[in-house]
């Protein structure tokens, strides 16, 4: 049953990714990106990685895309990029991307199937409680470093805006 859901959400994720590329208005592209991310979260849930599914919805859809939407509301100018959506390289880029995607699909499909026993013996190591315990046992220092990185990101964004308003 989960195979059907995986196929369904995979198809939806690809469709919404294509919509992000093809939509003329940035806000519609952003909403397509939100739908794409929700589809990926559903895929993670189908795989049993509930922690990552929740991270995906909370951090990406909830935080990162809010940044994007605010920026679109601040900057949505109707300029040249609105009239001519694609660059001159569009046609050769589409051809090359199609070839690359086909090659990746074929090559990955030919990889040997490994570790089926481990995969089928999937336990509950990615549920919240077990993952949190393992994460804080092994990665508590990295977690603290991540908070420092977030703080540096805030300071850098603030400094960039201040420098831009001065200049």
């Amino acid at each position: 049953m989960s195979g059907i859901f995986i196929a369904f959400f995979s198809a939806l994720a690809v469709v919404f990714a294509i919509m992000v590329i093809t939509m003329r208005q940035p806000m519609r592209a952003a909403l397509s990106l939100v739908a794409h991310m929700v589809c990926l979260a559903a895929l993670y849930a189908c795989l049993g990685a509930h922690v990552v599914a929740v991270f995906q919805v909370l951090i990406y859809v909830g935080a990162v895309m809010v940044f994007m939407v605010y920026t679109i509301m601040l900057l949505d100018d109707r300029d040249m990029s609105y009239q001519w959506v694609f660059s001159r390289l569009a046609l050769p880029a589409v051809v090359v991307a199609g070839l690359v995607a086909a090659a990746l699909w074929v090559l990955i499909g030919r990889l040997p199937v490994t570790a089926p026993a481990i995969a089928t013996a999937a336990g509950d190591s990615f549920t919240f409680s077990s993952f949190s315990v393992a994460f804080m046992q092994h990665y508590w220092f990295h977690f603290e470093l991540a908070t420092v990185l977030l703080l540096i990101g805030i300071i850098a964004a603030w400094a960039a805006v201040k420098e831009g308003s001065n200049g």
């Binding site: 995986i6 995979s10 994720a13 690809v14 990714a17 294509i18 992000v20 590329i21 939509m23 940035p26 592209a29 952003a30 990106l33 895929l43 795989l47 994007m68 920026t71 679109i72 900057l75 949505d76 040249m80 990029s81 609105y82 001519w84 959506v85 694609f86 660059s87 390289l89 569009a90 880029a93 589409v94 991307a97 690359v100 995607a101 990746l104 699909w105 990955i108 499909g109 990889l111 199937v113």
Partner: peptide, 29 residues
């Protein structure tokens, strides 16, 4: 294998968008 191949396909779509789109916001997306 299907999901890793799907990741490759989605990565290619993202790269295609970075190359062909002219709007800065959509390039970030």
């Amino acid at each position: 294998q299907f999901l890793v191949a799907l990741a490759g396909l989605i990565f290619t779509l993202g790269l295609l968008g970075v190359v062909i789109r002219r709007n800065l916001l959509v390039v970030m997306m």
